[in-house]
Design a protein around this nucleic acid. Structure first.
Lengths: 209, 209
DNA sequence: CGAGTTGTAGACTGCTTGTTCCAGAACCGT
DNA sequence: ACGGTTCTGGAACAAGCAGTCTACAACTCG
């Protein structure tokens, strides 16, 4: 019976996500959002409730896909160590572009974790999930004999969280792609790789200018 | 001849710095600043020019002291490797507190680097300086025979930038001190320490709850 | 085809924002 | 003590803000 919407909800959320990621929550006005999404004022309020609610939708969506991206790579069919290297490289490539699309997850974590409990708990949950994925991947590598069995898989998992978050932050701050890539590849040296692991990995890095 | 000021300029900047670090540039109103600094409206405009100018003063000051803190540790009399470990540990301790004071440098980098060229270039310059300090420290360690001479000192320097920035970001996002400390200590494993280095470092970590 | 429901568009409302203006108070060197 | 200069505090300002209200348009189902 009702008149059908002239917009796609998922598309609106995605545009809002990009806008919020670019200028932050406090720095984005409702008019900015209307322009970015093409919605009319009232449509936005009918469909989402308000600025904060739309932000949370965008933020949760971005967080979910960020977590998902890690999970997908960490459970792929590649060699366990190669999965982590893939993630490091892709992080450098994504966040090292000249006009790299900002990550709302990172922005919200820095801007709002301190003041908004819901954002804070979402960030914490996402972080735990990502950490577990890395840890599981390291454990896989240990079982495959690619990493020394007496290494602390969980410590390495949390460690890679820090490295990748650091790369994202620095990328946002303007650090070049090649520098980020160097960071990522250097971080792999903290992993005690067995002779078998080295053999399986082969010689690394292509040309990532 | 003129009436003397009733406030200390450096003190005002420091209070402004804390306020901006807590709530960001866009999220901090002039009234917030007046309350935090105790200044009257007109006094703030007379002395600093406006919100943006006061922010830049606070931002530049915070950046300078962040750089300085790194330089001080990296050129201290400690063993080169111990300097880096000290920096890692202190980062974990500072940013891992329950109500850790936020770093304006990090916030500004994430919030404004993308839109404000002056902030961006300041961040870049500071980053290069910090990176150089780490690199020089690694080179020191190589000369002292604590790190393998064929290691890439610059790669390790940039790498520690990423690790420490990642720890800061995650600390801000709510990660616990112990977890940050684990990240920091794990990151040291990426350094190819010589037998002599191991001997000099001795057995590590105290109790950092 | 028409009645009912929902989306849309834009004017509108308080409120907050950053900034300026103005009158008076406080201080210093003479 | 006084004149000149600066600081101070509050009122005033225009612009921008998130959110609301109302009239109209569009679509579906009976």
């Amino acid at each position: 019976m009702p008149r059908p919407r002239m917009f796609d909800e998922a598309d609106v959320i995605d545009r809002a996500r990009r806008t919020f990621a670019e200028t932050g929550f406090a720095g984005t006005s409702l008019d900015d959002l209307l322009e970015a999404t093409g919605l009319a004022r009232q449509s936005l309020y009918n469909a989402f409730g308000g600025k904060k609610e739309l932000f949370m939708r965008a933020f949760l969506s971005d967080t979910a896909s960020a977590v998902d991206a890690v999970t997908t790579v960490m459970r792929s069919a590649e060699d366990p160590i190669a999965r982590i290297r893939t993630k490091l490289v892709s992080t450098a490539v994504e966040h090292g572009a000249a006009k790299a699309p900002a990550s709302l997850f990172l922005r919200a974590a820095v801007e709002l974790s301190g003041s908004d409990p819901e954002v804070a708990s979402t960030v914490t949950t996402a972080f735990d999930s990502i950490r577990a994925d890395y840890t599981a991947c390291i454990a896989d590598a240990q079982q495959a004999g690619e990493i020394e069995v007496d290494a602390d898989a969980e410590a390495l998992g949390t460690y890679f969280c820090a490295v990748i978050e650091g790369m994202s932050t620095l990328g946002r701050a303007g650090v070049a792609r090649a520098t980020l890539l160097q960071m990522g590849l250097t971080s792999l040296a903290a992993v005690p790789i067995t002779p078998l692991g080295h053999e399986r990995l082969g010689t690394e890095d292509g040309d990532w200018t």
